[in-house]
Design a binder for these strands. Structure first.
Lengths: 241, 241
DNA sequence: CGACTGGTTGATCTCCATCAATCCCTGTGG
DNA sequence: CCACAGGGATTGATGGAGATCAACCAGTCG
């Protein structure tokens, strides 16, 4: 078990919102300490999910939103004929389950790509709390708005027709999101398989692999298994469109 | 239930929410009459947009949400190099502008595809009102959730690799949305050009045209200009995946 | 150690983008 | 009313990007 990163001083006590590393990306952004503790009270924390564990499945009753503390979750739906379609990758600080509010049923599957811990936010209680905390209400709207925007960016990413563009944009997108979390800028680890990437981007998995090696040959990136280092950020940016 | 024949008289005075034909798809779903009139008070109604008029442009300040009363709006963004990417088509009863809540700036352009009338819902006032109307607050969440779900379906639509699948899913998607509005089931009019469709689906416009004629030759649909009739719904459904 | 999953590389074929010509609606003005 | 212009849509011919099939390699785990 590659215990590579030595900077993870694991916190074994249950993390309160107040002490959460990704708080600023999550729901309780810019609330007072008192208000945060109100949110904190309704949060349900569970045992970490192991790789391959499902957070929820298509058709499950909607119990609440989930905020990723650390780890990564993949969401995917099934087409009528049973083909899998990956709809998103959710990293630390991102909220998922927003797509279930309307119908009160989860429309997709959510599975952990690695060891992952999430906070469950029971939605009915959350809504009650928004009645007394306008700031929270606004934050909820913002989180949902951000999710809508995120999906639009995915559309933009898929729009550019060539495989290279898609791959490059995907790398850049992921890099940006990783950078918001860890300090390290141009080197990170993929939490998803080539399979998942290819499915997400609408490409064959071989194409994904080839594009990676292509970029590697051009000395723009360096890839070892799932670890990527961006050697020439500007060059990569230029390829994006 | 469905609107009865006696309700069909056109209302030429500015339409109040209460009398709006697409109310059930919009924000004031399942509110009491009294509550609806509160929402109604904050709605700003304007002159109709003509085809080609912009509702807002990228970078415009976020003033509020917009609900389409009738007509159709196309939203699109620009990539870094200036390529247009269509991100959505918004029909009567659909709310747009949700993507601007977080940053308080519109991230895309919204242009009318035909004569279109919208209600403007100033967001700050709307948020104030949600504090006293929990039902409205919930509806807002639901509308946003629905939008997230809608975009996921687009991803699913684009996922299937072949051009035929994309076209077919697009037709079915549009048909479903039209059916929610008008009674007529399998015959409707496209509000967008082939250009727009191709851009949206990530295909060449010639491919779109060819696929349409293909389906026409197979007697599955009938297309005259922008008017389409689905002759064999089951066959079409089967092609979707 | 073999079995297995995930990833890379190679060869071939097909679908679709691209370029180009033509057609057809729509509206405008003589 | 017709002619004409111009954008939108169709159709045809061609080349190439990427899907597919298949073999091979590298970690990982029981």
């Amino acid at each position: 078990m590659a215990t590579t990163g030595s900077n993870l001083k694991l916190i074994h006590v249950k993390t309160a919102c107040e002490a959460c590393r990704v708080r600023e990306l999550c729901l309780p952004t810019s609330l007072t300490e008192a208000d945060i503790s109100l949110v904190d009270e309704l949060v349900v924390r569970r045992e970490p999910l192991e790789k391959g564990d499902y957070l929820y499945r298509t058709g499950d009753d909607f119990r609440g939103l989930y905020a990723v503390q650390y780890g990564a979750i993949k969401t995917y739906g099934l087409t009528l004929q049973g083909r899998e379609q990956v709809t998103g990758f959710h990293l630390a600080g991102e909220v998922l389950g927003l797509d279930a509010i309307d119908q009160e049923v989860h429309p997709c599957n959510a599975i952990a790509l690695e060891k992952t811990e999430v906070c469950q936010l029971p939605f009915d209680k959350l809504e009650q709390l928004t009645q007394s905390l306008p700031g929270l209400s606004h934050n909820l709207s913002r989180v949902m708005s951000r999710e809508i925007l995120r999906e639009q960016h995915v559309l933009m990413m898929l729009g550019g027709t060539t495989a290279e563009q898609r791959i490059v944009r995907f790398i850049l997108n992921l890099q940006k999101r990783m950078a918001q979390r860890e300090i390290m800028g141009h080197s990170f680890r993929f939490c998803m398989s080539r399979q998942d990437i290819s499915n997400y981007l609408g490409l064959a998995l071989e194409t994904v692999s080839r594009q990676f090696t292509h970029l590697q040959e051009k000395q723009i990136i360096d890839i070892q298994n799932r670890h990527i280092t961006i050697l020439q950020p500007e060059a990569l940016q230029k390829l994006a469109d």
